[in-house]
Simulated scan of single mutants.
Amino acid sequence: MSPNSPSASAMHPFILVDGVTNFRDIGGYACQPSTTALSPSSRAVFEDPEEQWCIRPGFLFRAAQPSQITPAGVEILTKKLAIQAIFDFRSESEIQLVSKRYPNSLLSIPGTTRHAVPVFQAGDYSPVSLAKRYGVSADDSTQGQEIRPGFVKAYEAIARNAAQSGSFRAIMQHILQDSTGPVLFHCTVGKDRTGVFSALILKLCGVADEDIVADYALTTQGLGVWREHLIQRLLQREEATTREQAEAIISSDPRDMNAFLSDVVEAKFGGARKYFLDLCGLQEDEVDRIITKLVVPKTLEEKADGKNI
């Protein structure tokens, strides 16, 4: 399959949407929802021992901000991918900064509905600013350390703020109310806030931790030319003394997501399901319905020519 195809694959996970970086479908990952917490009716759906399950392909997409999308990119996004709803996790401050730097940038894309669901109400939370805000230093980024505590703190703050602000609840409610139209969610570069939401929803549906971590780690590759821009910002601000240190801070290091899943999602939240119930305020039946909408038989995924994970 060509990497320019509007469908992703394990070999070519990124979808070419001109003007948007780090664009990919989070569907296709093998999963096995935990049946112990499901209602009897929902549990029965997943009890067939012969069936294999995966995340519904062609429905949930993640990306960096689409502000510089081109007309060709709009055509792919709205026609071939049929995306109708876009959830924007950025703060108003970040949006204004983009508009100042790029006067021709788009806020709303023709043919779609933009939902402003800021995780943080104000301030810059791009990867560079997030690293500075939560104390991620060059020393945290050496390969010798098992975890990078600054990013783990940052991801916990993202999850808690998104619950408090209603940001993640809003996109979950949309999935409940309109399960037909594909959805795109994004922050600035599609790494941190986008990565946290992606991890939580994949975890909720029973995707293995190693696949969640692998999906997160793809952003290092997916940033493309934007990655170089962020590296240069770190060096210019002297927040990294060498290029190697800057690259490590910008990267989507698997250690960060591994620690977030184990030390925060499991140890502090009690799992992704309890996060959406206790912190986001969803009801048990709502969570069950979301899982049954997002998890499909593997045979359907193969017919859709999605990821063959």
Rank of each mutant, 00 (worst) to 15 (best):
K293S: 12
S67P: 05
G306D: 08
T292E: 14
L38R: 15
D305H: 10
D253N: 14
D288L: 09
G206M: 10
A63N: 06
F87H: 08
E284S: 13
P71C: 00
Q221D: 12
D288I: 07
F14I: 06
M1C: 10
F260R: 07
D288Q: 05
S141R: 14
L230H: 03
P110M: 11
F269Q: 06
N161G: 10
R273T: 00
Q143Y: 11
R243F: 06
I76P: 03
A246C: 05
A214G: 10
L107R: 11
S165T: 11
M1T: 10
E301V: 13
I15N: 12
T219V: 01
D25C: 08
P6I: 11
K203L: 09
S93G: 10
E266T: 15
D18F: 12
N258D: 13
T241M: 15
R101K: 12
R56W: 09
L60V: 04
K80A: 14
S126A: 10
I76L: 12
G19A: 06
P49G: 03
T113L: 12
L218A: 05
S262Y: 04
G58L: 08
Y102V: 15
F276Q: 04
G222H: 03
L106C: 05
P6F: 14
S93D: 15
F168Q: 05
Y102W: 15
Q164P: 08
V74N: 02
P103T: 12
D139E: 08
T21I: 10
I69F: 00
C205F: 01
D139H: 13
R193P: 08
N161A: 12
V213F: 02
L223E: 02
T220D: 01
Q173S: 10
E92W: 11
P118W: 03
V136W: 00
V287A: 02
E51I: 02
P66C: 05
C280Q: 00
S137W: 11
I26C: 08
T21M: 06
G27K: 10
V183R: 15
T292Q: 14
R233W: 02
R193C: 13
I309P: 12
A63F: 08
A10C: 09
S105N: 13
V213C: 06
M257N: 02
T220Q: 01
R133I: 06
P66D: 05
D192P: 06
S2V: 11
V295Y: 01
F89W: 15
Y216S: 08
L223P: 05
S5G: 03
Q65Y: 13
D18G: 12
E51M: 13
T299S: 13
V213N: 06
P66E: 06
D253P: 04
L223C: 04
A82F: 09
I83A: 04
E266Y: 07
V196L: 14
Q245F: 07
F276G: 03
Q65I: 09
F61S: 12
A63L: 06
H229G: 11
A138T: 11
R255T: 00
I212Q: 02
G150N: 00
K132E: 05
F46E: 02
I86S: 00
Y155F: 13
G28I: 09
C280L: 00
